[in-house]
Design a protein around this nucleic acid. Structure first.
Lengths: 318, 318
DNA sequence: CGGCTTCCTAAGCAAAGGCTTATCCCGCTC
DNA sequence: GAGCGGGATAAGCCTTTGCTTAGGAAGCCG
């Protein structure tokens, strides 16, 4: 019984899927499967079994998942405790949806770490579904993105902005005074990874406009989406303040689509007060400061690409 | 960072000695040392360092020991939880001082397990010093022997008996009406392993009589002691009710030594109520029943040797 | 100073952990 | 029944654990 095996089991139990757990851990699926097999053999219990609704816990598994989760948590605590005792900077693991990770997180954390003594932050990309699990298993300290509702998770608004639909200046409807969703039926919709989640604001928008999946294309990030849109005849959702410069320069046009702009709220989520790490508490406090607000609203596509670190955690949409 | 390493660390921290930890775990001393080295390297902290008073914790080690202890505990809990979920019998690890392990524990646990559904008991021998640590790290559920005073440990009286001094019928003082301790200065004292602990009742007796260490000989068990005494010219401490038959048969003689018989109390110790295992609770309850009392007082040297299992844990005096 | 105890290191070995790719199996949908 | 998606299994590989015995280093006591 190793901590690796227990962690694999906990993730499978919580995510209901070996594949998803493997994604979160950034390993191949047989790796998780065999860790699980070893644990099953060691404990003499199936722990999780296949069912139509995903992997389900056996009675033994149900009892184990809480214990195993605590052990994994304590493992993370142990490392953090030693680090602190030695005066090493706290590590802050932040996960965010792709859009947030691309534009908001880097300048925000840059400022935060420069202001806060001895905290070192890393950013990872994750889907919304994994976020509560990542927080609960201490694989992440803070999640930035949509509101999360799960027991033990504390989610509060971080910033508000507006979602619009943009097109290139050569798009047929570039000069129209009003655009109905139906009139866009010939255009392809370009989205970033976060847009593929049905529960996201972009996902909701696409559903509302009845955009079939084959008329969407997924790009690696919103920057890539917008430069593709500027060159071609496609449309894309966009955050108003992030494309403001492109719109002012005439490279992009905000289409006056009915039902837009859509108000969007981003949240910061952590474990509840008693269980969250000190660094996570500091970040939450920092996010309420005027300086943080300023950085968030000023953030635009001008962030150098080099600063965007590769995702720490493999994403759902990989 | 493995559970094995953490357990080694916790035992070293609590016992203040690598050697003692190795003894408790039943492995060689370099095994513990290297586990510790691996953990030190992994965490980048010395954790424990040599000092005149044994191994002492560094600041990092102090923080770790609580966390690590919880992890080890949870590891044991995990196994137990699965076992229960599957309806497998609970495992009850009992440790006892050598005298208790030799005479009291086997018939007692035999009766207990036959009366109590789905509990399986094993007995190990241990020194008094290790007992609190063994309980706290869940290496044992119940300790039988002297009273233990440590935080989180619940120790209550189990049985009372009398300690006397016996000799063979050919001993010069076999027929004396009164014997002073000084008059025994030519005799060797034979003791069982538990008698080597200065804090034990036998240890106290020897101290009180100023018996130098070279005039004692340690035997593997009290039975061996008494049969050696019956044949030779040595003396030994003995539990009155256990040698009653030998005395009645004339093979042993109770010497009328001043200061004897000594009243001795044996205790049953477990973690406190909230943290002890269900099986441990059941055993405590069982010990208060008339049947249990009866077995304890009737127990004599007639227990077949085959029933005495080899110690699970290597003893201090090995 | 020598001798003792205690801890650490070295060397070597067997076993387990942990990862990969490739393949099989099973339940589903079309 | 063919295809498919997700989980298990097989094979192969390398690293880490975990244990041993043997020997070296460091503190303590005569």
């Amino acid at each position: 019984m190793t901590l690796t095996q227990l962690e694999a089991f906990v993730l499978v139990a919580r995510l209901g899927s070996v594949k998803a757990a493997a994604g979160v851990l950034g390993v191949s699926e047989p790796a998780v499967s065999s860790a699980l097999a070893a644990l099953r053999q060691h404990l003499g219990d199936q722990l999780v079994v296949r069912s139509p609704h995903g992997m389900e816990l056996t009675p033994g598994g149900q009892r184990l998942v809480g214990i195993a989760s605590q052990m994994v948590t304590l493992g993370a605590d142990a490392v953090a405790a030693i680090r602190r005792a030695q005066g090493a900077p706290d590590l802050l693991h932040v996960v965010a949806t792709s859009t947030v990770a691309e534009f908001m997180a880097p300048p925000l954390l840059e400022l935060f770490t420069s202001r806060t003594a001895s905290v070192e932050a890393t950013v990872g990309v994750s889907g919304t579904i994994e976020m509560p699990v990542l927080l609960q298993d201490r694989l992440a300290d803070v999640a930035l993105g949509p509101r999360l509702s799960a027991v033990g998770i504390d989610s509060s608004p971080m910033m508000r902005h507006k979602l619009v639909v943009v097109a290139g200046k050569r798009h047929p409807l570039a000069g129209a005074t009003e655009v109905t969703p139906e009139s866009l039926s010939k255009s392809r919709w370009l989205v970033d990874p976060a847009g593929t989640e049905p529960s996201s604001e972009v996902g909701q928008l696409l559903q509302r406009f009845n955009v079939p999946e084959r008329r969407t294309r997924v790009f690696s990030g919103a920057s890539a989406v917008w430069s593709a849109v500027a060159e071609g005849h496609d449309v894309a959702p966009a955050l108003a303040h992030l494309v403001a410069r492109d719109v002012a320069d005439g490279r992009l046009v905000v289409l006056p689509v009915r039902g837009t702009p859509v108000d969007v709220l981003w949240y910061v989520s952590t474990l509840d007060l008693s269980r969250r790490s000190p660094a996570a508490t500091k970040l939450r406090q920092f996010l309420t400061t005027p300086d943080a607000m300023h950085v968030m609203h000023r953030a635009d596509g001008s962030v150098p690409v080099a600063r965007f670190r590769p995702p720490v955690y493999v994403t759902l949409w990989s």
